[in-house]
Structures are given as structure tokens and as C-alpha cells.
């Protein structure tokens, strides 16, 4: 059941992006920033947590999850450290993902070469 839920919800969350691509000619980066900001809002409003429990990776693999991670990090940091958490929390929460993607990208650039298909 958890697999079906992840598939259906994860897939459904991608459909609005496709509609935006086809209908508005919006650039990809604008669509993605929209997803992340929405993720911060949903995470901040406390809606995201229950949703993620239900949908599993269907909720946290789409970029909403990245936004939620940022919001969650800020909340936890403020709870434990006070006001400074406003600045430290977001990237602390997302640190592993960003660092991994950055380091690996440097690695890929050393290994792979761009090709025309």
C-alpha cells in the first residue's frame, strides 16, 4: 500500500508543473522556485508533516519536500537556540542534500563529458 500511495501522490504532484510548462511557457527555474516556496509555506503551516506521514517518499521526493526541510530546520533551530535559528535553521536542515549534490556535481564534472544525443 505504501508503494502505491507514494507512486500516486508523487506522480500527482508533478502534474501541476507539467500544466504550467505547457500552458504558460514559464521557465523551469520559476516553476521549481514556486514548488520550494510552497513547500516552505506548507511545512511552516504544519500541514506538510501529516501529509508526509501518509504519502512517504511521494511527499518528500518532490521539491515540496526540500521546502519543508528548510521550514522544519528553522522551526527546530528557533525552538532550541532562539532567534539565531531564523538564520541557521534552514540550511542546517538541508545541509546533507545540498552538500551531497554540490560535491557529487564536482565529481561528475571530472568523470563525465557532455554529449549530443
Amino acid at each position: 500500500m505504501r508503494f502505491l500511495r507514494a507512486f500516486l501522490i508523487g506522480g500527482a504532484l508533478c502534474v501541476p508543473a507539467q500544466i504550467l510548462i505547457d500552458k504558460t511557457k514559464l521557465m523551469n527555474s520559476r516553476i521549481l522556485t514556486g514548488y520550494v516556496v510552497l513547500g516552505v509555506i506548507l511545512g511552516g503551516a504544519g500541514i506538510y508533516g501529516a501529509f508526509a506521514d501518509f504519502a512517504g517518499s511521494g511527499a518528500y521526493v518532490p521539491l515540496f519536500g526540500f521546502g519543508n526541510t528548510l521550514a522544519k530546520g528553522v522551526k527546530e533551530a528557533i525552538d532550541s537556540d532562539g532567534a539565531i535559528g531564523i538564520l541557521t535553521g534552514g540550511l542546517t536542515g538541508a545541509a546533507a542534500g545540498i552538500t551531497a549534490a554540490t560535491f557529487l556535481s564536482v565529481l561528475w564534472s571530472l568523470i563525465f563529458k557532455s554529449r549530443q544525443k
Binding site: 507512486f7 506522480g11 517518499s57 511521494g58 521526493v61
Partner: peptide
């Protein structure tokens, strides 16, 4: 496609 990637994640 999105569903499959999330399924892989699950």
C-alpha cells in the same frame, strides 16, 4: 515519470 521516481524512493 514522477510517480515512478517516488516509487523508487519508497
Amino acid at each position: 515519470t514522477g510517480g515512478t521516481i517516488c516509487l523508487a524512493g519508497e
